[in-house]
Every structure is written in C-alpha cells, then in structure tokens.
Amino acid sequence: MRRSNYDVKGLPGFFGITILCLVILYAPLLVVTVYSLNDSNSITNWEGFSFRWYVDVFSGPESQKFKIAAWNSFTIAIIAATAATTISTLAATAMVRGGKFKLRTVSFGLISLPLMVPEIVLAVATLIFFNSVGFTRGYMTILIAHIAFCIPFAYLPISARMQGIDDSYEQAAQDLYATKRQAFTRILLPMMLPGIISGYLLAFIVSLDDFIITNFVKGAGVETLPTAIFGSVKQGIKPNIMAISTMLLGFSVLLVTISYFVSKTDNKK
C-alpha cells in the first residue's frame, strides 16, 4: 500500500465550514426568491407556485408607487455612476501615473473617506450640510450624495486596473511619435476599459442599493426602491415585497456577474 502524498495545506473540517459559509450567505436569498413565487396572501404558508406577486408589483395597488421609485432609483444610479466613474478615472490617472507627490496620501484619504466614515455618520453629515446651505431635500440632494459615496467604489477597480498596466505601453506609443494625449486616448484608455466598466457597474449597484443615506437626504415624497421597500417592510413583510426584492436581487447579481467576467478579460501579453 502506498501512502498518499502528505498534503501540508489540507485541514480537516475546513471544507465543511466553507460549505456552511456559502449556505449561510445564500440560504436567505434563495428562501426569499422561492417565497416570492408563493401563491398565497400570507408569507407563512406555501400554497403553490405562482407569478401573481410579480404581476402585482407591476399592476397592483402599489404599482404606481413602485414605478416612480424604480424610475428615481435607476436614473439616479445611471447619473451617479457616470459622474463617479468620470471623476474616478481622472483621479486614478493622476494617482497611478502622476509620479510621487506630496498630496498623494491626502488625495487617497479624501477619495476613500466615504468608505471610512460609517454610513450613518455620512448620512447625518450630508443632511446637516444640505440643511445649512439651504438645499431643498429631494431628487437632487439624493443624486449629489450618491455621486460622493460612489466615487471610491468606482475608483478602486479603475486604479487597480491601471496599476496592472505597465507604463511601457504609453512609452512605446510616445516612442512611436504619439503625444501624451494620444497615448492616453488611443492606448491607455482602451486597455483600462475593463476596469472602467467594472467600476461603473459597482458604482451603479452601490447607488441602486443605498438605503441609509438616501433615507436621510430624500425629503418627503421622494422615494427610491430601497426606501419604498423599507416603508412597506415596517408594516410587515408582504409577498409583493418579496417579489420586488427578488427582482432587485437578481439585477444586482447580474451586474456583478457581468463586472466579474469583464474584469477577467485580462490583457495577456
């Protein structure tokens, strides 16, 4: 009998815990998805498969509220992600390709500030700011706040991508008579595209998902999907909430998956 190789890495039980971890992470999401397809007025009992709550989301009594909330959520997410991605791409170019400079650490601190400050604190600060400069709370204040906290999420994948691109490509372009601007637009930008796309998608999801800050700065009457869902959940979980949650959940998973596969398209030499 030959003894199998001594596996120095393997530890008993760790595989089991990993599976447990995945079960913990996914079970609640799966349960919500399954129960959103429940043909019952209560969420407690399973009464067979049905799409009725999905239909209810689009044409039920609350459909108008959800439509407006969805419109707000998506338009804000698109504008916020676009603005944050643009600002972040410029900043990443300076941070990664700007050599060493004194304000580098300070700039990085400023960019990652929205990640370090607890969300509720950022929400309070933003509310106080809007209040003291006299901005009326509503769609615009939500948008302004969203762009700010989306910036680090867009920045991180973009700068990571740029760090992964050897600067010899831009040098080769300049060596071949391209100006710096041409080297940026014709060489660097196309190579960074996967990073920019995943940065955009992450910013988009973060904006779409935000509840706490939105809840503080939205003002009366303006709702996004998360604040609308929260309002309904406060009165108890209803089946139509499960349906709308499942749709939002599926949408996020879809975007993250796209982002994952886009960033995987690596520039192989």
């Binding site: 490509y169 040098q171 300049q174 391209a178 190579m191």
Partner: peptide
C-alpha cells in the same frame, strides 16, 4: 526633446505590443 519628437525608436524588454 520629448520621446515623440525624437527620430529614435525602442524595442521594449516586454515588447509592449498594444494588446487591443
């Protein structure tokens, strides 16, 4: 002169071929 104004070209160590 900046590199793009010099009639001198380089073969880079890692080739730096534009992947796209």
């Amino acid at each position: 002169l900046p590199p793009n104004k010099r009639p001198v070209n380089t073969v880079f160590q890692n080739y730096a071929l534009f992947p796209q």
